[in-house]
Design a protein around this nucleic acid. Structure first.
Lengths: 244, 244
DNA sequence: GGCACTTCTTGTCGATCAGACAAGAAGGTA
DNA sequence: TACCTTCTTGTCTGATCGACAAGAAGTGCC
């Protein structure tokens, strides 16, 4: 067995963090993309992210830092979790670069992008990414696919949907989150009762108003529960079509 | 912005793969552990795993290689998936070592451990690990916790349970998988109908026999479905206990 | 104010599903 | 054959889900 020095020589890798930052804009799911300013893939769009600053930086901390630097968002206020690792040997022409992708959820309508370092960041409808009408650098398409799928899944079993909303929200706002992420339509009346039937999902926050045009809605905040019981099941998509 | 050379100097890391290999032995969930032969944590138990062999090795391939080298199991025959990344800066005294943990599921009763390189590997009941009566090296306790939780969750929504069984199995064998992983009891009669109600979960494999002592059971093989619809929901654990 | 309009909230109803349990089927063994 | 074990099929009851009606509570317009 060779020593540690040989190990470093032969098999150390560079670590990056990449961010799939999702939010809702005009009731559609958007992801934050940046235009790359230099090679490789200069001019193409990619997920925000970057290299570990130094060997002592924690990975999640690096993700939070990139969230701030490249997106102008404060990690303390939004949901941030590890998504997966992408380490295919050929994914980056600069050498062996392994990326730890993260999923972040931003509350609705953060300004199009703060006037920060990364003014070239823009919210893009995920549809445009998923149908490949807007190609991404590296393997970032796959990362977005996985991130959106993770979000879809966690909407069912966890309180992640509240992360798309502000500190208080109405139930129809919450419903629009589900509809946008799942790309489906839900019955407002059943949704209303279902959400309130989940223990600790949402708790009333004053009998206040907020909507416009119709009857004012009650406000809620996120409850203490992180895993939903019973879960919010998304409607069957296969629709009796002889599976396969 | 500094060049690539500085980046490598300052922030490259060593990558390892670690394996949470689960199986069923005597109807209890077990995880494969190895006794460490050298520092750090010499003599302690840890998950099987090791460093990336070289810079060109794919991560999943490295996991498959360790599966073979350290556990004597063939990655082609069993379920193997990425679990998560553990990269806390202080987790390994040898320097910045980032581990990509994987979850593997072995069919029931692979021999206690083949007479391979790692003869010091042994199947250990996960209870003993989770209640910390058997301490693990590094942050491997956390990795085991996350791996078991992942297995529990995927039993609900995917056909992962069949990976615990051989190529053919009876429904009561499958039931014992659920009972062991979830640590719960299920009604055999309802389970029987429920499993068969899930489209493409299991398909009959000859009206053969297999069990002993009672009426022979029908044999099944895993079906084409990977995501279960409707899902197998695990019984509510909170049991009307004023949530908290 | 009265009226139309919007959206929120509560009710109801039938189909479907989950969990409890009875009973029959199909082998082994004394 | 009598019994034991385990598998498989039925049935029943209460809970849940999705469709939809109807009432509640605001805004804006005449």
């Amino acid at each position: 067995m060779s020593g540690m020095r040989d190990l470093w020589q032969s098999s150390s890798v560079l670590l990056t963090v990449d961010l799939v930052i999702l939010t809702l804009r005009e009731d559609r799911l958007h992801v934050l993309l940046v235009e790359r300013g230099h090679e490789p893939h200069q001019g193409a769009f990619s997920l925000p992210g970057g290299f570990l600053r130094d060997r002592s930086e924690d990975i999640l901390a690096a993700a939070a830092r990139e969230l701030s630097e490249e997106a102008g968002l404060d990690a303390g206020t939004l949901h941030l979790e590890q998504l997966a690792v992408y380490g295919d040997p050929g994914r980056d022409p600069r050498g062996r670069v392994v990326s730890v992708a993260h999923l972040a959820i931003a509350p609705r309508l953060p300004e199009p992008v703060a006037g920060t370092d990364a003014a070239d960041a823009r919210w893009t409808p995920v549809d445009q990414v998923l149908d490949t009408s807007l190609p991404l650098a590296f393997d970032h398409l796959r990362i977005v696919i996985d991130g959106v799928e993770r979000a879809c899944a966690k909407l069912e079993s966890t309180a992640l949907a509240t992360a798309f909303c502000g500190p208080t929200f109405t139930l129809s706002e919450l419903q629009r989150v589900y509809e946008a992420v799942w790309d489906t339509r839900l019955d407002a009346r059943n949704f209303y009762r279902k959400v309130q039937g989940v223990r600790g999902f949402v708790i009333p926050a004053g009998p206040t108003r907020k909507t416009e045009g119709g009857r004012p809605a009650r406000l809620f905040r996120a409850g203490p529960t992180t895993v939903l019981y019973p879960p919010m099941v998304r409607p069957d998509r296969t629709e009796r079509g002889e599976d396969q």
